[in-house]
Design a protein around this nucleic acid. Structure first.
Lengths: 345, 345
DNA sequence: TTGAAAGCGCTAACAT
DNA sequence: ATGTTAGCGCTTTCAA
C-alpha cells in the first residue's frame, strides 16, 4: 500500500459538514443549498452544479436529525418483539423492513422478552425518540396484552394480537390453514385422524377446534383424544408411540407444528408404519429446516409470516399518514404446501 | 364499559406537549423546566415539584430528536445484517441490544441480504441519521467486504470479519472450538476420525485445518478425505453413507454444523452403527433444535454468539466514547458442550 | 434561584 | 433565481 493516510487517526472525530459549509464552498446561501439538493426550489442549472460538486467534495450528507425536528417526523418505527428475534419473528420483521424501507422508514428494534415492564420502558423510549409508529410482534400466534391505548404514535400488532379490540392486529389465519390441512388429509383418502400439538394455548386451541369442526362437518371425528405436550420433536415421538400403543387405528395426524410433525412421522417410520401410505402427517410453519430434513419430507401449513409483517407495516404506514384505522384483528391467508408425507396412499 | 371516550378519534393526532407547555402550566420559564427535569441545574425544591407535576399531567416526554440535534449524539447505532435475521444473527443481535440498551442506546436495523449496493444504501441512510456507531454482522463466520474506511461513525464487525485489517472485528474462535472438539473425541478413545462439512468456505477451511493439525500433532490423520457438500441434514446422511460404503473404518466424525452432524448420527444409527459406542459425532453451533432432537443428543461446539454480539457492542461503545480502537480481528472463546453422541464408548 | 438569549442544522415562507 | 428570516424543541451559558 502506497497511499497516504488521509486523516490523522489520533485526531478527534471531525464533525460532519453542514449545509453552511457547502454554501460557503459554492459561494451561495444556505437556503440555496437546501433547494438545490432537495430539488424542491428553483435553482439555476449552473448554480446547482456548483453546489452538488461542493457537496460531493465535502462528502456532505443532510442531517436527518435536523430535518426530523423541523418536519416533526422521524421516518422511524419502533418494533417490540418478545421471542428474542426467534424463528417466527424473523420473517415478520423481514416483511416489515422491506415494506418500510421502500418508504424510507427505518426500524428501531428491541426485545421485551415478554416482560411488560421492559416493554413499557421501550415504548417510552420510542415515544421520546418520536417514532412515527410502533409495531408489536409476539412469540407466536396468540393474544397478548396491549402496550397501551391512545399512544402518541399509531401502533399495529403483528402475529400475536392485542387483547384490546381498539388496537389493530394482523395475524395469520391459521384456522383456515388448519381447514386446508384437514381437507387435504380427507382428500387423500384418510378418515381416521389424530391430533397432536404443543401446550394448550391459543394456537393449539384454534387448530384443534377447526380440525374437529371440519371432521364433524363430514360426519367424522378424531379417533383419539387430542394429545397436548410440548412444541418439540421429542414430544412428537412420544405422542406417536402413545397412539400406536393405544391400539386405535389411525391413518392421518394433524400436528401443531413441524417439529412435532417430524417427531411423529419419523417415529411412525421407525415403528415400521409407512408414511404416507399408511398414515399421512401434516405440520404447521413450513419451516425449511424441518420439512426438508424429515423422512419423508413434510406437508405443512405455511403461515405467510413475511406477508403478515408486510401487511402490518403497510397498515402502520397508512396510520402514520393520518388514516384512521378500524380496530380489530385482520387475518391473512395461510397456504398448504403438500409434500411426500401426505402423498396419495 | 362505562368510561367516556377521552379523545375524539377523528381528531387529527395531537402534537406532543413541549417544554414550553410545561413551563406555562407551571408558571416558570422553559429553561427552568429543562433544569428541573434533567436534574442538572439548581432549582428550588418547591418549583421542581410544580414542574414535575405539570409534566406528569401533560404526559410530557422530552423530545429526543431536539436533544440529539443539540448534543450531536443520537444514542443510536445502525446494524446491518445479511442473513435475513437468521438463526446465527439472532443471538448476536440479542447480545448487542442488551449491551447497548444498558447505555440507553437503541438499534436501527436493516438487512442487506449480502448485497453490497443495498448495504451501501443503508450505510448512507445511517450516516444521514447520524447514528453514533455501526455494527455489521454476517451470515456466518467468514471474511466479508468492509463497508468503508473512515466512515463518520465508528464501525465494528461481528461474527463475519472485515477484509480490511484497519476495521475492528469480533468473531468466535472456532479454530479453538474445533481443537476442543477433536481433543474431546481423542479423549473419549477415538483415533480414526472423518470430517464432514458444508461448502468450502472460511468456516469449513478453518475447522478442517485445525482438525488435521491437532490430529497430526498426535501422530494421527483423517482416515478419509474431507467430505464437503451442503450445510444440511440431507448432506450429512449422504456423507455418512459414503463413509460406510468406502469400507474404511472410522470411530469419530467431526461435522461442520449441527445439521450435518445430526444427519450423520441418525444415518449411522439407521445403518446399525451405534453412536456413541462405535462412532462419536460432534457438531458446531449448539443449536437446541438440532442437538436435543437428535438421537442420540449431539455434542456440539457452542460459538458463544451472544457474547460476540455483546463484546462487539461494548467495543463500539468505547469507540463512540472517543476511544481509538486497534484494528484487527478479536476472537472470543467457544466451548464444547458434551452430550450423548460422544459419551465414552 | 430563575430567566433571557443563543444556537444545534435544517426547511419553507417571504422578500428581493 | 437567490437570499433573509423565522422557527422546529431543546440545553446551556450568562445576567439578573
Amino acid at each position: 500500500m502506497t497511499e497516504t493516510q488521509a486523516t490523522d487517526p489520533s485526531a478527534p472525530r471531525r464533525r460532519s459538514p453542514t449545509a453552511a459549509d457547502v454554501a460557503e464552498r459554492a459561494g451561495v446561501s444556505i437556503s440555496t443549498v437546501s433547494k438545490a439538493l432537495s430539488g424542491k426550489g428553483a435553482v439555476r442549472h449552473e448554480t446547482r452544479e456548483r453546489i452538488v460538486e461542493a457537496a460531493r467534495e465535502l462528502r456532505y450528507q443532510t442531517n436527518a436529525v435536523a430535518a426530523s425536528l423541523l418536519a416533526g417526523r422521524t421516518n422511524t418505527v419502533g418494533v417490540i418483539t418478545s421471542d428474542r428475534f426467534g424463528r417466527l419473528t424473523a420473517p415478520v420483521l423481514l416483511g416489515a423492513t422491506e415494506a418500510l424501507a421502500q418508504e424510507g422508514v427505518a426500524l428501531l428494534l428491541c426485545d421485551g422478552r415478554g416482560d411488560r415492564i421492559r416493554e413499557q420502558f421501550f415504548v417510552d423510549s420510542f415515544l421520546q425518540r418520536r417514532v412515527d409508529g410502533i409495531l408489536v410482534t409476539g412469540a407466536g400466534i396468540f393474544g397478548r396484552e396491549s402496550v397501551g391505548r391512545d399512544l402518541s404514535s399509531p401502533t399495529v400488532y403483528a402475529m400475536a394480537w392485542s387483547d384490546d379490540p381498539h388496537d389493530v392486529s394482523v395475524v395469520p389465519d391459521d384456522a383456515a390453514g388448519t381447514e386446508a390441512a384437514v381437507r387435504h388429509l380427507l382428500a387423500t383418502g384418510r378418515r381416521r385422524l389424530a391430533f397432536v400439538s404443543g401446550r394448550w394455548d391459543d394456537a393449539s386451541r384454534v387448530r384443534l377446534n377447526r380440525t374437529t369442526d371440519v371432521l364433524e362437518g363430514q360426519g367424522h371425528s378424531l379417533v383419539h383424544p387430542p394429545l397436548l405436550g410440548q412444541w418439540t420433536e421429542g414430544w412428537g415421538r412420544q405422542a406417536a408411540q402413545q397412539l400406536i400403543r393405544s391400539g386405535i387405528e389411525f391413518d392421518g395426524v394433524v400436528c401443531g407444528n413441524d417439529q412435532i410433525a417430524r417427531g411423529v412421522a419419523e417415529s411412525l417410520r421407525d415403528a415400521g408404519i409407512d408414511v404416507p401410505h399408511q398414515v399421512g402427517v401434516v405440520g404447521f410453519d413450513n419451516w425449511d429446516v424441518m420439512v426438508d430434513a424429515c423422512r419423508p419430507p413434510l406437508t405443512s401449513v405455511d403461515l405467510g409470516l413475511y406477508d403478515v409483517g408486510q401487511i402490518a407495516a403497510r397498515l402502520l404506514l397508512d396510520a402514520m399518514g393520518g388514516q384512521q384505522l378500524e380496530g380489530g384483528v385482520r387475518r391473512t391467508p395461510c397456504h398448504l404446501v403438500p409434500r411426500e408425507s401426505t402423498a396419495t396412499p
